[in-house]
Amino acid sequence: MLNKYRKVMLIDDNEVDLKINSKIITISKLFDEIILCKSGEEGLSYLNNHIDDEENLPDFILLDIQMPEMDGFEFLEVFKKFPKPLKDKCLIAILSSTLDFGDIKKAEASRYVIKLLKKPLFPKELEEVLNRYLIN
């Protein structure tokens, strides 16, 4: 079930976390390709550049909340305006270390966020989410 070619996009301003999480995903072989973005803007411009290029769109986006300039919630606001096929393909989960009640509630309230994952990322947890939402 995991042999379909799949891409994941990581959006996080923290380079250590980008490195850790891509390592975890590589080792656990949950995705074939990882797109690393150091900011929400970078993620959005990647999506914009591949808007009609379904092959290269990520199947799954792991989005940090607290980032300078554009935070995770602002990213979601812009993401909302993408065409439906893109939104249907790119599922989003929040990946954050926040314990802030407001953040958690806001993340749960967003219709594009399928799950709130807490750092550190455990392969098993990620796999459970993927099995639940990404099996086509």
Binding site: N14, V16, D17, I20, N21, K23, S97, K119, P120, F122
Partner: peptide
């Protein structure tokens, strides 16, 4: 956040 990163590194070491 940095503390959780540390735990993430330990995680990778385990993997």
């Amino acid at each position: 956040a940095p503390l959780v990163s540390t735990l993430g590194i330990v995680n990778v070491v385990k993997l």
